[in-house]
Design a protein around this nucleic acid. Structure first.
Lengths: 255, 255
DNA sequence: GATTGTGAAGAATTTCACAGCC
DNA sequence: GGCTGTGAAATTCTTCACAATC
């Protein structure tokens, strides 16, 4: 089903582009703060840490908002990107977990700034309930469904331990939340149509470790990391194996 | 230059694969905890939230560690992935910024567990120096270089405000750190050879908002979000533009 | 003269589908 | 019979390079 081109842009923006738009937006805000009215793709690309051809291709997916020979009007581009990202409306966010991480998130200024509003901060732990964090009172997790419905929460943030995360996720989903940002180190199971994004500290560290190791490896010969320890349990093939079927117990899923 | 295949695996593992290995590793740890000795690509893929062909292709880059008709030995695969990621040695990590986020990171259990050790927690703010967090004493940021050298820090974590991040980064780099994990909402400038990974809350939220908006858009007609507000300053093309050269201007400043 | 917007080439990644092995 | 490992196809993403436009 292709539209007859009444509209200059194709609404299907590549995922990779979507992931960079927020970066451009931040760079553009930096430019307005400095009073810069216009910027070339080269300059903006440098500020955003990408290559300029990529920037231009990305922006071209939104429409033709630049001027050849001149560049992009900073304010105008900010508006267009914001609109594309849906930041011209504001989104109510609920954070579950009021530990250090949840509090850090609640206090994070940039969080609230453009388009997002923290509607609730919840925790199971009684001793935290009632505490004030970033101008909000911590509420009990029991209130999750009520809060989501009454305050029109559309994005749920999970800042609990790994153990509690799936339960919180299920409750968000059944209360109607379809966008979840997960900080707990688990893979969440969600039905079709729900978006989950994951932020995982230890994964990032492990990726860095991999590259760091490679750099070190260059200095030594190849094969430098072969059997630094006794090759542990060679694939000993013996007993019958236990199927992993009782995994979720919940009925979910097939392929 | 292709090696004569003395070694089963090519050392050039695709970046996309590297980013998934930690996820597999976590799923595998979950399986050992439940006493599962062997797992098929289908099962492991489900636990990791990816498709099984992708999983097999990823693992094939490390070598041939499965058994046809059977699957993968969980322990053995854990070892192989850990080794590939460089987790058989341990990495000293220094965290700069002892605010809520820095404290959350220091307390994060999974952080310390496999392969990583927090060697220092630093902050500029005098009132925080000396406080105890997760069994560590907060030290003054002045000590950064000394700490990096004395404690062989190889991964630096930046959990400061946006304003301070580049300075901290520069200091890490000049002290010899070549892997940096950045939580501050800025694009860091680093010389060639230094790896930076970025974790950015507001970017993740914006990506979610984009998709959330799309879901809502489906319910309404197309063009639903066109001019929800007066189309702001149409690209008015007037004054000469100011070049973006005075960019760094020495002083910090953020938003 | 400068800079955008974009076809086309190239690279990387994902997925398919099946030969090969246990 | 079941499951891995992998060529080949399909898809997505990046980069090049230049015509179109201001």
């Amino acid at each position: 089903m292709t539209r007859p081109s009444s509209r200059p842009r194709d609404r299907g923006i590549p995922e990779a582009t979507v992931a960079r738009l927020p970066v451009y937006l931040r760079a553009l805000h930096g430019l307005t703060d400095r009073g810069v009215p216009t910027v070339s793709s080269e300059e903006l690309a440098a500020a955003a840490g990408v290559n300029s051809a990529k920037l231009r291709k990305d922006l071209s997916h939104l429409g033709s908002y630049g001027t050849r020979g001149v560049g992009y009007d900073v304010e105008y581009l900010i508006y267009q990107i914001s609109r594309e990202l849906g930041l011209t409306q504001d989104w109510a966010v609920a954070i579950v977990g009021a530990g250090n991480l949840g509090r850090a998130l609640a206090n994070y200024g940039g969080f609230v700034s453009r388009g997002f509003r923290i509607a609730a901060l919840l925790d199971v732990q009684e001793s935290l309930v009632g505490a004030e964090v970033a101008g909000l009172r911590v509420e009990h997790s029991d209130q999750l469904e009520a809060v989501v419905r009454q305050r029109r929460v559309s994005i749920g943030v999970i800042a609990t331990s790994a153990a509690g995360a799936q339960t919180v996720c299920d409750r968000f989903v059944s209360a109607g939340v379809t966008s979840i940002l997960n900080f707990a180190p688990v893979v969440l199971n969600v039905p079709e149509g729900v978006d989950v994004r994951k932020v995982d500290l230890s994964i990032e560290l492990q990726i860095l470790a991999f590259h760091e190791q490679r750099k070190a490896a260059g200095a030594l010969g190849p094969d430098w990391n072969v059997s630094v320890e006794p090759p542990p349990a060679p694939p000993e093939r013996v007993g019958g194996r236990i199927p992993v079927d009782a995994v979720d117990a919940a009925e979910e899923e097939g392929r």
